[in-house]
Design a protein around this nucleic acid. Structure first.
Length: 639
DNA sequence: GTGCGGGGCGCG
DNA sequence: AAAGCGCGCCCCGCAC
């Protein structure tokens, strides 16, 4: 289908000034703002030079109307921007998009550290077309002289030519399915279907403001401690010191500025020292620490504000901003200050069924006559690890829908554990199955248990961790195998080795769909392998990698990266197949697909979704897959 | 005023 | 040696 489309380069130039710009606001707010003005755009038709078109709105619209959009794939560097102008401002809907900015993420961005048009063009050694940035701050189209208009157009045309050159490279290396995923990702944003419930958002903002205001007032009157003091770590430390409390401390991570690391206050909700203060004999200390904890979490408040703002901007519709290949493993990431992949989960009170957490999810609603369906893969990564390791008893257990968590907990405790009667034991089993598969050590495991309020000592933590590694011994073997493959082939410029549908090559692992997980500059260092991870990209000085600037990686880490990447391929393949059946996901959260369907079709849609999601994987046919599918009038109700 | 990094917290 | 890992956003403190 993609081949039949005509690729057309498109780049809008728009008004901006000191206050009104994409630096100051998110894309949706910028494009829908009253100050928005399209100054003009450049278009590049196949085999022709890009042309600059400018004039008033009607003139631009007439020019755009001449394009047969139903047969066009729009090529842009940052298509979320150009697409939202084309669709929301001018009302034209092309058949597809190819965004060269996100399309550059899998192969180029890990090496360049930047997805800008300039750095990608340079990286590809595209013919220099001039890179002078044309400043047009605070000028409207009618403010420009004839000469200025021409120079502006010339600048815009160059950008479009560059973007089209990048696209020519990308279509050589991105499989068609990945190109299609870029398009589907953009359409989740450009053609929103989920709605935001403005009343619910406002009601929750009011309730939360009231709750927090009352608490802050109480702290201020009782202890003379204000909000700023609660928010500041040093100021809060002073308050505790004045009350004779010895401050809980913890080591900081070594940084460039402070290579040896240091000490800092242990004031986080999971710090043991801080937890002790929550049960301190002095009720004032307890209350102050609880207040600090409350003020530490601002996600719900800030997200409510952002969503309400978006609700007002978009007439109640929710554009879903996702970044294609946001993670180097291929996972998508969120964007535009609303990250829909980390909304608090729904939690209800066991007795009263009252909603305790996850209110935000109930504000994401279906249109009238429609329902939201949420479909989750069940522990897909753990299943992939078991399959990859050829830990056959574990794979069989998953295939037979056994309660794996309870089963391992039974080994741990020596008596039969079940989901109903042994909540704590099963939780321990679950943590083991989900966490220990990636090589977690007993120290971190012990910490995690203590943080979850489960009493445990060093000896017991060691016993459980080694029991796991003995019970599922193929999994530590897998870490070792991956370590050896990496040490041999990833650091060798000519390295290339095929292993279980993966190819270990120079500085990358190639996945069954042909896409890479990249480990730029991977090399042996003082403590094993290091590579320039996303976090350290900016530190590239062209002199190779300093060990202290790199991220350490080993077998357990490769195991996790590969499992994550394979799970992503499985989820997106299912999404693509469902798209071809006319079922487009409106949202994606790693192992979860969300759909918006007419309510009378919910049952048949659920059957189709299950059928496609559990379909065996051609490159891992022995992988047992299971899904859980729910529906309701809102995202919260479907969870 | 703005940019940046670390701590913190939410999800998978 | 076996060391869980992948994101984005808010806030504070600090450098520029």
């Amino acid at each position: 289908m993609q081949q039949e489309l005509i690729d057309i380069g498109l780049d809008f130039e728009t008004y901006y000034d000191a206050d009104y710009s994409l630096k100051k606001m998110e894309n949706a707010q910028y494009v829908m703002d009253g100050r928005f003005e399209s100054m003009g755009f450049s278009l590049k038709l196949p085999g022709q030079k890009a042309v600059w078109i400018t004039g008033d709105y009607e003139h631009q619209k007439r020019a755009l109307a001449a394009i047969p959009w139903q047969r066009v794939r729009v090529v842009s560097h940052n298509a979320r921007f150009d697409g939202s102008i084309l669709e929301w401002r001018f009302g034209f809907k092309p058949a597809a998009y190819l965004c060269t900015m996100v399309g550059s993420r899998p192969h180029y961005v890990p090496l360049t550290g930047s997805a800008s048009l300039d750095s990608i063009s340079q990286h590809l050694k595209l013919q220099a077309k001039g890179t002078a940035v044309y400043k047009m701050v605070g000028k409207h189209r009618t403010d420009l002289s004839k000469l200025e208009t021409e120079e502006y157009g010339a600048y815009c045309v160059v950008d479009t030519e560059n973007a089209c050159d990048i696209a020519a490279s990308l279509i050589q290396i991105l499989p068609l399915e990945e190109q299609e995923l870029i398009d589907l990702t953009l359409k989740k944003y450009l053609r929103p279907r989920l709605k935001l419930d403005g009343h619910k958002l406002m009601a929750r903002i009011t309730a939360l403001d009231h709750e927090r205001g009352a608490m802050l007032q109480q702290i201020l009157t009782r202890y003379g401690v204000d909000e700023a003091t609660l928010r500041s770590r040093p100021k809060f430390a002073d308050v505790l010191t004045k009350r004779g409390v010895s401050l809980p401390m913890k080591p900081t991570k070594p940084t460039k500025k402070n290579p040896l690391g240091g000490q800092t206050y242990a004031f986080a909700k999971d710090d043991m020292g801080f937890k002790e203060l929550l049960i301190h004999p002095d009720p004032a200390v307890r209350e102050l620490c609880n207040a600090k904890l409350t003020m530490s979490s601002s996600l719900e408040q800030s997200r409510l504000r952002r969503l309400l703002d978006l609700h007002n901007t978009m007439n109640g519709f929710l554009p879903v901003p996702m970044v294609y290949y946001g993670a180097h493993t291929g996972r998508f990431s969120g964007d535009e200050a609303i990250n829909l992949q980390n909304l608090p989960r729904v939690e209800r009170d066991k007795q009263t069924k009252e909603i305790r957490k996850g209110h935000l999810r109930f504000a994401l609603t279906a249109q009238p006559g429609y329902s939201v369906i949420a479909a989750d893969f069940s522990n897909i990564e753990a299943r992939i690890v078991a399959t990859l390791a050829r830990q056959t008893d574990l794979v069989t257990g998953f295939r037979n829908s056994e309660d794996i968590y309870s089963k391992f907990a039974t080994s741990v405790y020596g008596y039969p554990v079940n989901k109903k009667d042994h909540e704590t034991e099963r939780f321990v089993g679950k943590t083991c199955i989900l966490g220990l598969g990636y090589g977690m050590g007993w120290r971190k495991f012990l910490l995690k248990m203590l943080q979850s309020g489960i009493a445990m000592d060093e000896k017991e933590a060691k016993r459980i961790v080694y029991l796991y590694r003995n019970t599922y011994s193929c999994i530590p073997d897998l870490w070792k195998a991956l370590d050896q493959l990496a040490a041999k082939f990833l650091i060798d410029p000519q390295g290339m080795y095929e292993w279980r549908n993966l190819i270990f090559a120079s500085e990358r692992i190639i996945l069954p769909n042909g896409m890479p997980i990249q480990y730029p500059d991977i090399a042996n260092g003082p403590q094993g392998l290091y590579f320039r991870s996303r976090k350290y990209r900016a530190l590239d000085d062209g002199e190779g990698l300093n060990w202290e600037d790199g991220a350490r990686i080993w077998g357990g880490g490769f195991c996790e990266n590969i499992a994550q990447a394979l799970a992503r391929i499985i989820a997106t393949r299912a999404e693509l197949r469902l798209h071809r059946l006319g079922l487009d996901a409106v949202l994606q959260a790693h192992d979860e697909l969300v759909f918006h369907v007419p309510t009378e079709t919910v049952d048949i849609c659920k059957r189709a979704i299950e059928f496609e999601m559990i379909r065996p994987v051609d490159w891992m046919p022995e992988l047992p897959i299971a899904v859980e599918i729910k529906h309701g009038p809102s995202y919260g109700d479907a969870k």
